[in-house]
Design a protein around this nucleic acid. Structure first.
Lengths: 161, 161
DNA sequence: TACTAATTATAAGGACCCTAACGATATTTG
DNA sequence: CAAATATCGTTAGGGTCCTTATAATTAGTA
């Protein structure tokens, strides 16, 4: 099928400022994430939702009030233009509606519909149960360490180049 | 800017088969990977390469012989159709050429050009040095643990649903 | 008040990635 | 040997995501 990514043995000789271990971490991090996203996408496929629009729907389902695209973009770390497209597809499926913002006429608010809430209630228990299964190969302490490592990497990656 | 992802406190009450920690791991894994991919993409931008086509070029630069799209798709875990598109754009930039396979006329071989090898030599030291910097927030032992966790997750994610 | 700057959502165009299907070629099977 | 099956790269169509540009509205300032 596919083995974990390995780095060539002469790697550090060729790239003196590099670390084979760091590069191996980077490639396997991305690889693992892609596997996970594909798995979640497969769970959402019966509902005609992508992993991105499923996440938007989850965010709206968890929010007590409708949210502006602005804020959704910030949470997903994608551009506002991307959120426009995601809301378009969710609106086409009647999972959300766009409402005018009461005080700022530049803005709209995305509000989940009953049908959207129903869809979220259909897939979220499945998805979260699977996540639990997948990560159960790590015990609690290992999960905490893994999470701590991810947090530190995020900080490191957010520092100005 | 953006904080690490947190899970609502009533999460496990709402989803009995779920684990807040596992879901938090999953979301932060994907988030961290996306940050990393964007960082690498920014490094490749001056060369008009995306992170995906940069990876294809690296694979071809490391291979002693030209490779069939088939095999590139397997290493990248993307479809063959995707590789066709990546090779198209690399060929447009004269970074690779398509050669007929000597024995199997269904296949082609992607061969890196001198110009492609030059491009790879331009960006790889930069990219790998940065990877080293980013991951230096973890010490050697932590990197090994992180890598081991990723390997186990990959296995777990590859098991049939 | 008028001007400028900032922020909003959206549109347009491009890259990546998928599935499904197609034609060509190889391989296996009867 | 002939026919069915499998595999190759590619194409077509759709979704996601990006950057850049645009129109509308708001906020800040002289």
């Amino acid at each position: 099928m596919q083995r974990p990514i390995q780095i060539a043995s002469d790697f550090e000789a060729r790239y003196p400022a590099a670390s084979a271990r760091a590069t191996e971490c980077a490639m396997n991090l991305v690889l693992t994430s892609e596997l996970l996203v594909k798995r979640i996408g497969a769970l959402l496929q019966p509902l005609r939702l992508s992993s991105a629009s499923g996440l938007v729907l989850s965010i709206l389902a968890d929010s007590e009030s409708p949210l502006p695209p602005n804020e959704i973009a910030e949470r997903l770390i994608v551009s506002r233009a991307t959120v426009t497209g995601l809301l378009d597809s969710l609106e086409r499926q009647n999972y959300i509606r766009r409402l005018p913002h009461p005080s700022d006429r530049r803005m709209i608010l995305a509000k989940i519909t009953d049908s959207g809430r129903q869809a979220a209630q259909a897939f979220r228990p499945l998805v979260h149960a699977r996540e639990n299964e997948w990560f159960s190969v790590l015990d609690e302490a290992e999960q905490e360490q893994f999470l701590a490592a991810l947090h530190r990497l995020q900080e490191s990656l957010r520092e100005l180049s």
